[in-house]
């Protein structure tokens, strides 16, 4: 049985991780929606700029944040997220 102090510590760490994840989501949501909201709109662009073979807005508004989001995910999972014992089992079979 896990001690309350250990569980409490793990809970507080999980809560910190929760808010960091929400922050990461917000950052990338703002990036893609705001950038693409301004630059992906084709209302006036009959000949959109092409970069690396794709429309420029796809590179800056989707591909670049995607690569950064994966990098952030790797940092988060391997660097920031802490291991917690999960063995507090009370099977009820």
């Amino acid at each position: 049985m896990q001690k309350p102090e250990e569980l409490g510590k793990s809970f507080r760490q999980s809560k910190r991780e929760f808010w960091v994840m929400v922050g990461i989501w917000t950052f990338f949501a703002i990036w893609t929606v705001v950038y693409n909201g301004f630059f992906a709109d084709g209302g006036s662009a009959e000949d959109p700029e092409i970069l690396f073979g794709m429309p420029k807005w796809v590179i800056i508004g989707v591909a670049v944040p995607w690569v950064l989001a994966v990098s952030t995910t790797i940092w988060f999972a391997m660097g920031f997220m802490k291991d917690t014992p999960l063995s507090n089992e009370e099977e009820t079979e």
């Binding site: 999980s14 929760f18 994840m21 989501w25 893609t32 508004g61 995607w66 989001a69 988060f76």
Partner: peptide, 27 residues
């Protein structure tokens, strides 16, 4: 590409947001 862009953060949110606590509380 924009429609599916949310998938860039799906793994961290869908797996990270609840998994550790849900596993712990479930146990």
């Amino acid at each position: 590409a924009w429609w599916i862009a949310g998938y860039m953060v799906v793994p961290i949110i869908a797996l990270g947001l609840l998994a550790k606590r849900i596993n712990q509380v479930g146990r």
